[in-house]
């Protein structure tokens, strides 16, 4: 798309307010070449709306703090260049959904941290020899790229529309569990958790999480589906059950 010129005027329509008193407010800014949406929001904050609430930290797509919905699409504001969106119309910026709203562009994401606590942590064997190879962990390292921006949690309709927060862990935590389950040194078994508590079978694989991931983690194909298959091994597969019975292996 065409490159934004310094001084070009752009309107941002930002959700403001808290509780029931919400409104969209238009702010006009003069953009600079190379700006991302977060530049505009911080400029508005510094010059027009000093109490505009927004989370951000690194401004380099490494921390996952500035998640929002830009023109209805879940994005990191620090990675969304004005060059790549239509600025002839007001750019609509809303907070992420799926979570209780706090104020302006900030949502309360504490629920995610509660879910994380319920996942059995990394459990190596006692005195395990930590010799393992790159080919063993290429898969795991993809999952560990996650920056916890929670855009996948935001877009997942199981949370966003069905509000199944008490029965469903969400894509972020399937990614985390996958990183543990597929770690060559880990000995814990989280299949029961995946099935009963994390609700892995609530997922109907619409891949929305994968599409929004700023780290390009193939959440559905590489984490969720392989985990489903692992639970299916235990739960729905009589052949595997038989093999387990005969060999006595787990």
């Amino acid at each position: 798309m065409s490159r934004m010129q310094t001084g070009q005027k752009v309107t941002f329509r930002i959700l403001r307010g808290e509780g029931d008193s919400l409104k969209e407010v238009d702010y006009h800014v003069e953009a600079e070449t190379g700006w991302v949406v977060l530049d505009a929001v911080l400029n508005i904050q510094a010059t027009q709306a000093p109490d505009l609430s927004v989370r951000w930290n690194c401004k380099a797509a490494k921390c996952g703090s500035c998640s929002a919905e830009v023109n209805g699409k879940p994005r990191l504001m620090c990675k969304t260049r004005l060059d790549d969106i239509d600025t002839s119309q007001p750019v609509v910026v809303h907070p992420i959904k799926s979570f209780p709203h706090v104020k302006d562009l900030v949502a309360d994401v504490k629920w995610n941290y509660e879910v994380n606590k319920r996942i059995t942590p990394f459990t190596p064997a006692k005195d395990a020899d930590f010799t393992y190879y790159q080919e063993d962990v290429d898969r795991v390292q993809e999952f560990r790229k996650c920056i916890e921006c929670f855009l996948c949690q935001n877009v997942c309709h199981i949370l966003r529309n069905h509000e199944a927060h008490s029965r469903f862990a969400g894509p972020r935590f399937f990614v985390r569990v996958a990183g543990l389950e597929m770690h060559p040194m880990d000995t814990a078994d989280r299949t029961q958790f995946l099935d009963q508590e994390a609700g892995v079978f609530l997922c109907n694989i619409t891949k929305c999480c994968t599409h929004v991931c700023p780290e390009d983690i193939h959440i559905t194909d590489n984490a969720i589906i392989p985990l489903k298959e692992r639970v299916i091994d235990r739960k729905y597969d009589p052949l595997q059950w038989l093999v387990r019975k005969v060999t006595g292996k787990k």
Binding site: P121, P124, Y133, Q134, V137, Q141, R144, H183, D186
Partner: peptide, 18 residues
């Protein structure tokens, strides 16, 4: 560093698996 690895950090590996 080794302690971090035992807590689950997944560092890049050498061909010898270290």
């Amino acid at each position: 560093a080794l302690e971090l690895e035992r807590w689950g950090a997944v560092f890049d590996r050498t061909p010898e698996g270290k």
